[in-house]
Design a protein around this nucleic acid. Structure first.
Length: 505
RNA sequence: GGCGUAUUAGUCUAGCGGUUAGGACGUCGGCCUCUCACGCCGAAAACUCGGGUUCGAGUCCCGGAUACGCUACCA
Protein backbone atom coordinates (compact mmCIF):
# COMPACT_ATOMS: atom_id res chain seq x y z
CA UNK A 1 0.00 0.00 0.00
CA UNK A 2 2.72 2.45 0.89
CA UNK A 3 6.29 2.46 -0.28
CA UNK A 4 7.22 4.00 3.02
CA UNK A 5 8.95 1.90 5.61
CA UNK A 6 6.40 0.61 8.07
CA UNK A 7 6.84 2.28 11.42
CA UNK A 8 4.14 1.98 14.04
CA UNK A 9 3.92 2.96 17.66
CA UNK A 10 2.17 2.12 20.85
CA UNK A 11 1.72 5.26 22.89
CA UNK A 12 0.33 4.70 26.37
CA UNK A 13 -0.08 7.21 29.16
CA UNK A 14 1.64 6.27 32.38
CA UNK A 15 -1.50 6.69 34.45
CA UNK A 16 -1.62 3.28 36.09
CA UNK A 17 -1.52 -0.36 35.15
CA UNK A 18 -1.64 -1.20 31.48
CA UNK A 19 -5.16 -2.27 30.58
CA UNK A 20 -5.57 -5.48 28.60
CA UNK A 21 -7.26 -3.47 25.85
CA UNK A 22 -4.09 -1.45 25.57
CA UNK A 23 -2.13 -4.67 25.40
CA UNK A 24 -4.23 -5.76 22.47
CA UNK A 25 -3.65 -2.45 20.68
CA UNK A 26 0.08 -2.86 21.24
CA UNK A 27 -0.09 -6.45 20.05
CA UNK A 28 -1.79 -5.47 16.79
CA UNK A 29 0.85 -2.83 16.21
CA UNK A 30 3.52 -5.41 16.89
CA UNK A 31 1.98 -8.01 14.57
CA UNK A 32 1.53 -5.41 11.86
CA UNK A 33 5.13 -4.26 12.17
CA UNK A 34 6.48 -7.79 12.09
CA UNK A 35 4.27 -8.76 9.19
CA UNK A 36 5.65 -5.91 7.12
CA UNK A 37 9.21 -6.10 8.37
CA UNK A 38 8.74 -2.70 9.98
CA UNK A 39 9.59 -1.11 13.28
CA UNK A 40 7.67 -0.79 16.53
CA UNK A 41 8.06 2.20 18.79
CA UNK A 42 7.07 2.68 22.41
CA UNK A 43 6.29 6.29 23.19
CA UNK A 44 5.25 7.45 26.62
CA UNK A 45 2.53 10.08 26.41
CA UNK A 46 2.95 11.79 29.73
CA UNK A 47 1.58 15.19 28.82
CA UNK A 48 -0.91 15.19 31.66
CA UNK A 49 1.22 15.92 34.67
CA UNK A 50 -1.81 15.70 36.95
CA UNK A 51 -2.45 12.07 36.09
CA UNK A 52 1.11 10.84 36.15
CA UNK A 53 1.55 7.75 38.29
CA UNK A 54 5.02 6.76 39.43
CA UNK A 55 6.01 3.27 38.41
CA UNK A 56 3.52 3.06 35.58
CA UNK A 57 6.15 3.37 32.86
CA UNK A 58 8.25 0.63 34.42
CA UNK A 59 5.12 -1.49 34.70
CA UNK A 60 4.44 -1.03 30.99
CA UNK A 61 7.97 -2.00 30.05
CA UNK A 62 7.90 -5.07 32.26
CA UNK A 63 4.53 -6.12 30.87
CA UNK A 64 5.76 -6.21 27.31
CA UNK A 65 8.90 -7.97 28.35
CA UNK A 66 6.77 -10.68 29.91
CA UNK A 67 4.52 -10.86 26.86
CA UNK A 68 7.47 -11.12 24.55
CA UNK A 69 6.62 -8.00 22.58
CA UNK A 70 9.88 -6.18 21.96
CA UNK A 71 10.12 -2.57 20.89
CA UNK A 72 12.67 -1.39 18.40
CA UNK A 73 12.72 2.06 19.95
CA UNK A 74 11.60 3.08 23.42
CA UNK A 75 12.52 5.32 26.36
CA UNK A 76 14.53 2.44 27.81
CA UNK A 77 16.21 1.40 24.61
CA UNK A 78 16.51 4.77 22.93
CA UNK A 79 16.64 5.25 19.16
CA UNK A 80 17.41 7.98 16.70
CA UNK A 81 13.98 9.58 16.89
CA UNK A 82 14.05 10.22 20.64
CA UNK A 83 13.43 11.27 23.24
CA UNK A 84 10.50 8.88 23.58
CA UNK A 85 8.89 10.56 26.55
CA UNK A 86 6.69 13.47 25.58
CA UNK A 87 7.50 15.35 28.75
CA UNK A 88 11.06 15.53 27.44
CA UNK A 89 9.97 17.08 24.16
CA UNK A 90 8.49 20.35 25.36
CA UNK A 91 10.66 22.56 23.16
CA UNK A 92 9.67 20.65 20.07
CA UNK A 93 5.97 21.13 20.67
CA UNK A 94 6.39 24.76 21.61
CA UNK A 95 8.04 25.38 18.28
CA UNK A 96 5.15 23.90 16.30
CA UNK A 97 2.54 25.65 18.40
CA UNK A 98 4.33 28.89 17.57
CA UNK A 99 4.37 27.98 13.91
CA UNK A 100 0.63 27.37 13.92
CA UNK A 101 0.07 30.70 15.68
CA UNK A 102 2.21 32.46 13.15
CA UNK A 103 0.35 30.98 10.20
CA UNK A 104 -2.99 31.91 11.66
CA UNK A 105 -3.95 28.27 12.09
CA UNK A 106 -4.18 28.69 15.83
CA UNK A 107 -4.87 31.46 18.31
CA UNK A 108 -4.34 32.39 21.91
CA UNK A 109 -7.17 32.11 24.43
CA UNK A 110 -7.32 33.51 27.95
CA UNK A 111 -10.53 31.91 29.19
CA UNK A 112 -9.92 30.11 32.45
CA UNK A 113 -11.11 26.57 33.09
CA UNK A 114 -13.60 27.97 35.58
CA UNK A 115 -15.04 30.39 33.06
CA UNK A 116 -15.39 27.64 30.52
CA UNK A 117 -17.10 25.40 32.97
CA UNK A 118 -19.53 28.15 33.87
CA UNK A 119 -20.20 28.73 30.20
CA UNK A 120 -20.92 25.08 29.63
CA UNK A 121 -23.30 25.06 32.50
CA UNK A 122 -25.06 28.15 31.27
CA UNK A 123 -25.37 27.07 27.64
CA UNK A 124 -26.34 23.42 27.28
CA UNK A 125 -24.41 22.49 24.17
CA UNK A 126 -21.64 25.02 24.42
CA UNK A 127 -18.71 24.42 22.15
CA UNK A 128 -15.64 26.59 21.66
CA UNK A 129 -15.74 26.97 17.88
CA UNK A 130 -16.09 29.35 14.95
CA UNK A 131 -19.55 30.33 16.11
CA UNK A 132 -18.67 31.13 19.71
CA UNK A 133 -15.03 32.15 19.73
CA UNK A 134 -15.97 35.74 18.92
CA UNK A 135 -17.61 36.08 22.33
CA UNK A 136 -14.71 34.53 24.19
CA UNK A 137 -11.53 36.12 25.43
CA UNK A 138 -8.93 35.28 22.82
CA UNK A 139 -6.51 36.86 20.40
CA UNK A 140 -9.15 36.84 17.69
CA UNK A 141 -11.72 38.80 19.67
CA UNK A 142 -9.31 40.94 21.69
CA UNK A 143 -6.95 41.99 18.95
CA UNK A 144 -3.20 41.86 18.69
CA UNK A 145 -2.50 44.79 20.97
CA UNK A 146 -4.63 43.64 23.86
CA UNK A 147 -3.36 40.08 23.50
CA UNK A 148 0.22 41.21 23.77
CA UNK A 149 -0.57 43.37 26.77
CA UNK A 150 -2.19 40.48 28.60
CA UNK A 151 0.69 38.15 27.89
CA UNK A 152 3.12 40.76 29.14
CA UNK A 153 1.06 41.06 32.29
CA UNK A 154 1.66 37.37 32.84
CA UNK A 155 -1.88 36.28 32.14
CA UNK A 156 -2.16 32.53 31.56
CA UNK A 157 -3.29 31.40 28.14
CA UNK A 158 -3.74 28.35 25.99
CA UNK A 159 -3.23 27.85 22.28
CA UNK A 160 -6.34 26.77 20.43
CA UNK A 161 -6.58 25.24 16.97
CA UNK A 162 -8.66 27.39 14.63
CA UNK A 163 -11.05 25.01 12.93
CA UNK A 164 -12.57 26.42 9.75
CA UNK A 165 -16.24 25.42 9.61
CA UNK A 166 -18.26 23.98 6.77
CA UNK A 167 -15.81 21.49 5.43
CA UNK A 168 -16.22 17.76 4.96
CA UNK A 169 -13.19 16.11 6.47
CA UNK A 170 -12.44 12.62 5.25
CA UNK A 171 -10.53 10.09 7.27
CA UNK A 172 -9.53 7.00 5.42
CA UNK A 173 -9.56 4.17 7.92
CA UNK A 174 -7.99 0.83 7.03
CA UNK A 175 -10.64 -0.99 9.03
CA UNK A 176 -13.71 1.17 8.58
CA UNK A 177 -13.23 2.74 5.19
CA UNK A 178 -14.07 6.37 4.55
CA UNK A 179 -15.29 8.26 7.62
CA UNK A 180 -16.60 11.76 7.00
CA UNK A 181 -17.20 14.48 9.56
CA UNK A 182 -18.18 18.06 8.95
CA UNK A 183 -15.68 20.43 10.47
CA UNK A 184 -18.51 22.57 11.86
CA UNK A 185 -19.11 20.01 14.61
CA UNK A 186 -15.46 20.07 15.62
CA UNK A 187 -14.40 22.44 18.38
CA UNK A 188 -11.31 24.61 18.61
CA UNK A 189 -9.27 22.13 20.55
CA UNK A 190 -6.69 23.27 23.01
CA UNK A 191 -3.30 22.38 21.60
CA UNK A 192 -1.10 23.80 24.28
CA UNK A 193 -2.09 23.90 27.91
CA UNK A 194 -1.28 26.68 30.33
CA UNK A 195 -1.67 24.50 33.39
CA UNK A 196 1.48 22.45 32.99
CA UNK A 197 3.14 24.11 30.01
CA UNK A 198 2.71 21.00 27.91
CA UNK A 199 0.80 20.25 24.71
CA UNK A 200 -2.39 18.22 24.71
CA UNK A 201 -2.52 14.76 23.20
CA UNK A 202 -3.62 16.11 19.84
CA UNK A 203 -0.65 18.33 19.14
CA UNK A 204 1.97 16.09 20.73
CA UNK A 205 0.62 13.08 18.89
CA UNK A 206 0.71 14.63 15.45
CA UNK A 207 4.10 16.24 15.94
CA UNK A 208 5.65 13.04 17.24
CA UNK A 209 4.12 10.76 14.66
CA UNK A 210 5.41 13.06 11.96
CA UNK A 211 8.88 13.49 13.42
CA UNK A 212 9.17 9.80 14.20
CA UNK A 213 8.09 8.98 10.65
CA UNK A 214 5.21 6.84 11.76
CA UNK A 215 3.56 5.24 8.74
CA UNK A 216 0.44 3.77 10.34
CA UNK A 217 -1.52 4.86 13.37
CA UNK A 218 -3.21 1.80 14.86
CA UNK A 219 -5.15 2.78 17.96
CA UNK A 220 -8.42 2.29 19.84
CA UNK A 221 -11.79 3.31 18.50
CA UNK A 222 -12.10 6.00 21.14
CA UNK A 223 -9.87 8.10 18.90
CA UNK A 224 -12.06 7.90 15.84
CA UNK A 225 -14.05 11.06 16.65
CA UNK A 226 -10.89 13.13 16.90
CA UNK A 227 -9.26 11.64 13.81
CA UNK A 228 -10.68 14.40 11.55
CA UNK A 229 -9.12 16.96 13.85
CA UNK A 230 -5.83 15.16 13.45
CA UNK A 231 -6.18 15.22 9.67
CA UNK A 232 -6.77 18.96 9.88
CA UNK A 233 -3.69 19.33 12.05
CA UNK A 234 -1.50 17.48 9.58
CA UNK A 235 -2.81 19.82 6.95
CA UNK A 236 -2.23 22.94 9.02
CA UNK A 237 1.33 21.92 9.71
CA UNK A 238 1.92 21.22 6.04
CA UNK A 239 2.46 17.50 6.53
CA UNK A 240 -0.53 16.10 4.72
CA UNK A 241 1.67 14.43 2.12
CA UNK A 242 3.27 12.14 4.68
CA UNK A 243 0.27 11.74 6.93
CA UNK A 244 0.13 8.21 8.35
CA UNK A 245 -2.65 5.81 7.50
CA UNK A 246 -5.21 5.24 10.21
CA UNK A 247 -6.74 2.09 11.65
CA UNK A 248 -9.14 2.32 14.56
CA UNK A 249 -9.55 -0.89 16.50
CA UNK A 250 -12.81 -1.92 18.14
CA UNK A 251 -12.98 -1.79 21.92
CA UNK A 252 -12.76 -4.62 24.41
CA UNK A 253 -16.02 -4.90 26.32
CA UNK A 254 -16.92 -6.40 29.67
CA UNK A 255 -17.93 -10.10 29.57
CA UNK A 256 -21.45 -9.45 30.81
CA UNK A 257 -23.59 -6.38 30.49
CA UNK A 258 -22.40 -3.45 28.52
CA UNK A 259 -19.52 -1.07 28.31
CA UNK A 260 -15.79 -1.03 28.24
CA UNK A 261 -13.94 -3.72 30.10
CA UNK A 262 -12.83 -2.36 33.45
CA UNK A 263 -10.75 -3.47 36.37
CA UNK A 264 -13.93 -3.85 38.41
CA UNK A 265 -15.23 -6.52 36.04
CA UNK A 266 -12.10 -8.52 36.55
CA UNK A 267 -12.34 -8.33 40.30
CA UNK A 268 -16.02 -9.14 40.23
CA UNK A 269 -15.71 -12.17 37.98
CA UNK A 270 -12.33 -13.39 39.08
CA UNK A 271 -10.18 -12.81 36.03
CA UNK A 272 -7.36 -10.36 35.48
CA UNK A 273 -7.57 -7.31 33.24
CA UNK A 274 -3.92 -6.37 33.66
CA UNK A 275 -0.91 -8.30 32.37
CA UNK A 276 0.92 -8.04 35.68
CA UNK A 277 -0.22 -7.57 39.25
CA UNK A 278 -0.41 -3.91 40.17
CA UNK A 279 -0.69 -1.98 43.37
CA UNK A 280 -1.91 1.56 43.01
CA UNK A 281 0.63 3.76 44.76
CA UNK A 282 -2.03 6.25 45.82
CA UNK A 283 -4.90 4.07 46.97
CA UNK A 284 -2.92 0.94 47.73
CA UNK A 285 -5.53 -0.93 45.75
CA UNK A 286 -4.27 -4.25 44.42
CA UNK A 287 -5.13 -5.91 41.14
CA UNK A 288 -4.21 -9.34 39.95
CA UNK A 289 -2.36 -9.97 36.72
CA UNK A 290 -2.39 -12.60 34.02
CA UNK A 291 1.15 -13.52 34.89
CA UNK A 292 0.49 -14.12 38.58
CA UNK A 293 -2.71 -15.96 37.85
CA UNK A 294 -0.66 -18.46 35.86
CA UNK A 295 -1.42 -17.56 32.26
CA UNK A 296 1.30 -18.24 29.74
CA UNK A 297 2.33 -15.14 27.81
CA UNK A 298 2.00 -16.89 24.47
CA UNK A 299 -1.51 -18.01 25.35
CA UNK A 300 -2.52 -14.47 26.28
CA UNK A 301 -1.06 -13.16 23.05
CA UNK A 302 -2.83 -15.86 21.03
CA UNK A 303 -6.16 -15.18 22.71
CA UNK A 304 -5.88 -11.42 22.41
CA UNK A 305 -4.92 -11.66 18.75
CA UNK A 306 -8.18 -13.47 18.08
CA UNK A 307 -10.27 -10.89 19.90
CA UNK A 308 -11.12 -8.72 16.93
CA UNK A 309 -9.12 -10.48 14.25
CA UNK A 310 -9.04 -13.92 12.65
CA UNK A 311 -6.84 -15.59 10.11
CA UNK A 312 -9.73 -16.30 7.74
CA UNK A 313 -9.90 -20.00 8.45
CA UNK A 314 -10.83 -22.10 11.47
CA UNK A 315 -7.44 -22.11 13.15
CA UNK A 316 -7.47 -20.76 16.67
CA UNK A 317 -4.20 -21.90 18.16
CA UNK A 318 -1.52 -20.03 16.30
CA UNK A 319 2.15 -19.68 17.02
CA UNK A 320 3.82 -16.30 17.23
CA UNK A 321 5.29 -16.84 13.78
CA UNK A 322 1.94 -17.76 12.28
CA UNK A 323 0.35 -14.72 13.90
CA UNK A 324 2.97 -12.39 12.46
CA UNK A 325 2.75 -14.08 9.10
CA UNK A 326 -1.04 -14.02 8.86
CA UNK A 327 -1.92 -10.73 10.52
CA UNK A 328 -3.84 -8.33 8.33
CA UNK A 329 -5.64 -5.14 9.33
CA UNK A 330 -8.18 -5.83 6.61
CA UNK A 331 -9.35 -8.87 8.56
CA UNK A 332 -9.95 -6.90 11.75
CA UNK A 333 -13.46 -6.65 13.05
CA UNK A 334 -15.35 -3.42 13.27
CA UNK A 335 -17.36 -4.08 16.39
CA UNK A 336 -16.33 -4.39 20.01
CA UNK A 337 -15.63 -7.78 21.54
CA UNK A 338 -16.67 -8.91 24.97
CA UNK A 339 -13.79 -10.30 26.93
CA UNK A 340 -14.46 -14.05 27.09
CA UNK A 341 -12.15 -15.12 29.87
CA UNK A 342 -13.41 -18.71 29.79
CA UNK A 343 -12.06 -19.03 26.29
CA UNK A 344 -8.81 -17.46 27.39
CA UNK A 345 -8.50 -20.23 29.97
CA UNK A 346 -9.12 -22.79 27.25
CA UNK A 347 -6.34 -21.29 25.14
CA UNK A 348 -4.04 -21.55 28.13
CA UNK A 349 -5.02 -25.19 28.49
CA UNK A 350 -4.21 -25.81 24.85
CA UNK A 351 -0.78 -24.26 25.31
CA UNK A 352 -0.08 -26.47 28.30
CA UNK A 353 -1.15 -29.50 26.28
CA UNK A 354 1.14 -28.49 23.47
CA UNK A 355 4.11 -27.70 25.66
CA UNK A 356 7.01 -30.13 26.08
CA UNK A 357 7.34 -32.05 29.32
CA UNK A 358 10.63 -30.33 29.99
CA UNK A 359 9.00 -26.90 29.64
CA UNK A 360 6.09 -27.91 31.87
CA UNK A 361 8.56 -29.21 34.45
CA UNK A 362 10.52 -25.99 34.33
CA UNK A 363 7.36 -24.09 35.24
CA UNK A 364 6.12 -26.65 37.74
CA UNK A 365 9.35 -27.03 39.72
CA UNK A 366 9.22 -23.60 41.39
CA UNK A 367 5.57 -24.12 42.30
CA UNK A 368 6.50 -27.39 43.99
CA UNK A 369 9.45 -25.76 45.72
CA UNK A 370 7.10 -23.21 47.18
CA UNK A 371 5.23 -26.11 48.76
CA UNK A 372 8.43 -27.52 50.18
CA UNK A 373 8.67 -30.26 47.60
CA UNK A 374 12.21 -30.55 46.28
CA UNK A 375 12.63 -33.16 43.61
CA UNK A 376 15.09 -33.95 40.87
CA UNK A 377 14.17 -32.38 37.56
CA UNK A 378 13.76 -35.65 35.70
CA UNK A 379 11.17 -36.81 38.20
CA UNK A 380 9.29 -33.53 37.96
CA UNK A 381 9.43 -33.82 34.20
CA UNK A 382 8.03 -37.33 34.28
CA UNK A 383 5.16 -36.26 36.53
CA UNK A 384 4.53 -33.09 34.53
CA UNK A 385 4.24 -35.19 31.39
CA UNK A 386 1.75 -37.49 33.05
CA UNK A 387 -0.40 -34.75 34.54
CA UNK A 388 -0.13 -31.55 32.50
CA UNK A 389 -3.09 -32.30 30.23
CA UNK A 390 -5.45 -32.30 33.18
CA UNK A 391 -5.20 -28.63 34.10
CA UNK A 392 -5.73 -25.15 32.75
CA UNK A 393 -2.88 -23.64 34.75
CA UNK A 394 0.46 -25.12 35.73
CA UNK A 395 0.01 -24.18 39.37
CA UNK A 396 -3.12 -26.33 39.54
CA UNK A 397 -0.77 -29.25 39.07
CA UNK A 398 0.68 -28.90 42.56
CA UNK A 399 -2.20 -30.42 44.55
CA UNK A 400 -2.83 -32.97 41.82
CA UNK A 401 0.78 -34.13 41.74
CA UNK A 402 1.49 -33.99 45.41
CA UNK A 403 0.96 -37.74 45.95
CA UNK A 404 3.81 -38.54 43.60
CA UNK A 405 6.20 -36.95 46.03
CA UNK A 406 4.48 -37.20 49.40
CA UNK A 407 2.69 -40.32 50.66
CA UNK A 408 -0.96 -39.69 51.52
CA UNK A 409 -1.48 -39.05 55.22
CA UNK A 410 -5.19 -39.71 54.96
CA UNK A 411 -7.62 -41.43 52.64
CA UNK A 412 -10.52 -39.66 51.01
CA UNK A 413 -13.62 -40.78 52.85
CA UNK A 414 -15.95 -41.00 49.89
CA UNK A 415 -13.47 -42.95 47.83
CA UNK A 416 -12.79 -45.28 50.76
CA UNK A 417 -16.48 -46.05 51.17
CA UNK A 418 -16.83 -46.77 47.48
CA UNK A 419 -13.57 -48.49 46.64
CA UNK A 420 -12.28 -50.23 49.77
CA UNK A 421 -14.24 -53.44 50.11
CA UNK A 422 -14.12 -55.89 52.99
CA UNK A 423 -11.77 -58.07 50.96
CA UNK A 424 -9.54 -55.22 49.79
CA UNK A 425 -6.98 -55.59 52.56
CA UNK A 426 -6.52 -59.26 51.67
CA UNK A 427 -6.21 -58.45 47.96
CA UNK A 428 -3.73 -55.70 48.63
CA UNK A 429 -1.67 -58.06 50.76
CA UNK A 430 -1.54 -60.49 47.85
CA UNK A 431 -0.78 -57.69 45.43
CA UNK A 432 2.01 -56.56 47.65
CA UNK A 433 3.51 -60.02 47.56
CA UNK A 434 3.20 -60.20 43.79
CA UNK A 435 4.98 -56.87 43.40
CA UNK A 436 7.56 -57.66 46.06
CA UNK A 437 8.53 -60.78 44.12
CA UNK A 438 9.40 -58.79 41.02
CA UNK A 439 13.06 -58.22 40.27
CA UNK A 440 12.21 -56.30 37.16
CA UNK A 441 9.92 -53.48 38.37
CA UNK A 442 9.33 -52.02 34.93
CA UNK A 443 5.85 -50.93 33.99
CA UNK A 444 5.43 -53.70 31.46
CA UNK A 445 6.60 -56.37 33.82
CA UNK A 446 4.42 -55.17 36.69
CA UNK A 447 1.37 -55.01 34.52
CA UNK A 448 2.01 -58.50 33.18
CA UNK A 449 2.49 -60.01 36.65
CA UNK A 450 -0.43 -58.21 38.22
CA UNK A 451 -2.87 -59.00 35.42
CA UNK A 452 -1.87 -62.65 35.51
CA UNK A 453 -2.43 -62.76 39.25
CA UNK A 454 -5.87 -61.06 38.89
CA UNK A 455 -6.89 -63.54 36.22
CA UNK A 456 -5.72 -66.57 38.14
CA UNK A 457 -7.71 -65.48 41.19
CA UNK A 458 -10.66 -64.34 39.06
CA UNK A 459 -10.69 -60.95 40.76
CA UNK A 460 -12.27 -57.94 39.18
CA UNK A 461 -9.68 -55.61 37.72
CA UNK A 462 -11.65 -52.55 38.79
CA UNK A 463 -11.85 -53.72 42.39
CA UNK A 464 -8.13 -54.31 42.61
CA UNK A 465 -7.04 -51.20 40.81
CA UNK A 466 -9.35 -48.86 42.67
CA UNK A 467 -8.26 -50.13 46.04
CA UNK A 468 -4.65 -50.00 44.84
CA UNK A 469 -5.20 -46.40 43.76
CA UNK A 470 -6.68 -45.45 47.10
CA UNK A 471 -3.66 -46.97 48.83
CA UNK A 472 -1.09 -45.13 46.73
CA UNK A 473 -2.85 -41.86 45.98
CA UNK A 474 -5.22 -41.45 48.90
CA UNK A 475 -8.07 -40.55 46.55
CA UNK A 476 -9.73 -41.74 43.38
CA UNK A 477 -7.75 -39.67 40.92
CA UNK A 478 -4.64 -39.84 38.81
CA UNK A 479 -3.17 -41.57 35.78
CA UNK A 480 -2.91 -45.28 35.03
CA UNK A 481 -1.77 -47.23 38.11
CA UNK A 482 1.42 -48.60 36.65
CA UNK A 483 2.47 -45.11 35.58
CA UNK A 484 2.17 -44.21 39.23
CA UNK A 485 4.08 -47.19 40.57
CA UNK A 486 6.75 -46.64 37.98
CA UNK A 487 7.33 -43.13 39.28
CA UNK A 488 7.09 -44.15 42.94
CA UNK A 489 9.40 -47.14 42.64
CA UNK A 490 9.15 -50.51 44.28
CA UNK A 491 10.03 -49.59 47.81
CA UNK A 492 7.63 -46.68 48.10
CA UNK A 493 4.85 -48.62 46.39
CA UNK A 494 5.12 -51.47 48.85
CA UNK A 495 5.34 -49.12 51.82
CA UNK A 496 2.17 -47.31 50.81
CA UNK A 497 0.37 -50.59 50.26
CA UNK A 498 1.35 -51.75 53.72
CA UNK A 499 0.26 -48.50 55.29
CA UNK A 500 -3.15 -48.71 53.63
CA UNK A 501 -3.59 -52.30 54.76
CA UNK A 502 -2.71 -51.28 58.30
CA UNK A 503 -4.89 -48.21 58.52
CA UNK A 504 -7.87 -49.20 56.37
CA UNK A 505 -7.96 -52.82 57.45
C1' G B 1 -28.76 16.49 23.42
C1' G B 2 -25.03 16.55 19.15
C1' C B 3 -21.51 13.76 16.27
C1' G B 4 -19.39 9.08 15.10
C1' U B 5 -19.06 3.75 14.95
C1' A B 6 -21.25 -0.79 15.25
C1' U B 7 -25.26 -4.93 15.19
C1' U B 8 -24.69 -13.50 12.82
C1' A B 9 -26.32 -18.58 18.89
C1' G B 10 -24.85 -16.93 26.09
C1' U B 11 -19.57 -15.51 24.08
C1' C B 12 -15.54 -15.05 20.09
C1' U B 13 -16.32 -15.39 15.02
C1' A B 14 -16.65 -17.39 9.24
C1' G B 15 -19.68 -15.48 5.49
C1' C B 16 -18.30 -10.62 1.13
C1' G B 17 -26.29 -11.86 -3.79
C1' G B 18 -28.10 -18.37 -4.43
C1' U B 19 -24.89 -22.24 1.85
C1' U B 20 -28.82 -27.85 5.14
C1' A B 21 -25.74 -20.17 7.68
C1' G B 22 -19.46 -23.01 8.96
C1' G B 23 -15.81 -23.21 13.24
C1' A B 24 -14.48 -22.38 18.46
C1' C B 25 -15.47 -21.41 23.92
C1' G B 26 -19.25 -22.51 27.32
C1' U B 27 -23.62 -25.83 28.22
C1' C B 28 -25.88 -30.78 27.77
C1' G B 29 -25.49 -36.10 26.22
C1' G B 30 -22.49 -40.31 24.80
C1' C B 31 -17.83 -43.09 23.97
C1' C B 32 -13.04 -44.46 25.98
C1' U B 33 -11.59 -46.50 30.96
C1' C B 34 -8.66 -49.49 36.93
C1' U B 35 -10.33 -43.79 39.10
C1' C B 36 -10.27 -38.62 37.96
C1' A B 37 -9.08 -35.89 34.10
C1' C B 38 -7.56 -35.41 29.01
C1' G B 39 -9.26 -36.87 24.41
C1' C B 40 -12.97 -38.33 20.83
C1' C B 41 -18.13 -38.27 19.01
C1' G B 42 -22.85 -35.95 19.11
C1' A B 43 -26.85 -32.29 20.50
C1' A B 44 -29.38 -27.73 21.62
C1' A B 45 -28.42 -22.72 20.18
C1' A B 46 -27.82 -17.09 15.72
C1' C B 47 -28.48 -13.46 10.90
C1' U B 48 -31.81 -6.41 15.73
C1' C B 49 -36.52 -4.60 13.34
C1' G B 50 -39.01 -2.10 9.10
C1' G B 51 -38.97 -0.73 4.17
C1' G B 52 -36.79 -1.01 -0.51
C1' U B 53 -33.20 -2.91 -4.92
C1' U B 54 -33.17 -7.91 -7.11
C1' C B 55 -35.67 -13.75 -10.14
C1' G B 56 -33.30 -14.20 -5.28
C1' A B 57 -30.58 -10.53 0.62
C1' G B 58 -27.27 -12.40 6.67
C1' U B 59 -24.79 -10.23 2.42
C1' C B 60 -26.49 -3.95 -1.33
C1' C B 61 -29.49 0.94 -0.20
C1' C B 62 -32.72 3.91 3.19
C1' G B 63 -35.03 4.42 7.94
C1' G B 64 -36.01 2.90 13.13
C1' A B 65 -34.19 0.46 17.53
C1' U B 66 -30.30 -0.75 20.59
C1' A B 67 -25.26 -0.63 22.16
C1' C B 68 -20.70 1.57 22.50
C1' G B 69 -17.35 5.75 21.84
C1' C B 70 -16.42 11.01 21.70
C1' U B 71 -18.39 15.63 23.11
C1' A B 72 -12.00 18.45 29.13
C1' C B 73 -6.21 23.20 29.64
C1' C B 74 -7.41 13.49 30.04
C1' A B 75 -5.25 10.42 27.06
Amino acid sequence: MTQRKVRVRFAPSPTGALHIGGVRTALYNYLFARHHGGELILRIEDTDSTRFVPGAEEYIAESFEWLGIPFDESPQKGGKYGPYRQSERRDIYRKYAAQLLENGKAYIAFDTPEELEAKRKEIPNFQYDAQTRGEMRNSLSLGEEETRRRIENGEKYVVRFKVEPGEEVHVHDLIRGDVVINSTVLDDKVLYKSADDLPTYHLANIVDDHLMEVSHVIRGEEWLPSAPLHVLLYRALGWEGTMPEFAHLPLLLKPDGKGKLSKRDGDRMGFPVFPLAWTDPKTGEQSLGFRERGYLPDAVVNFLALLGWNPGDDREILSREELCDLFDLGRCNKSGAKFDFKKCIWVNHEYILKMSNAEAARLLAPELEAEGIHEPMERVERVAGLMKGRVDFIKELVPLCRFFFVAPDSYDEKTRLKRWKEYSARQMQELKEVLAGLDDFSMENQEKAVMEWIESKEYKTGDVMNAFRLALVGQGIGPHMFEITDVLGKEETLARLQKAIDTLG
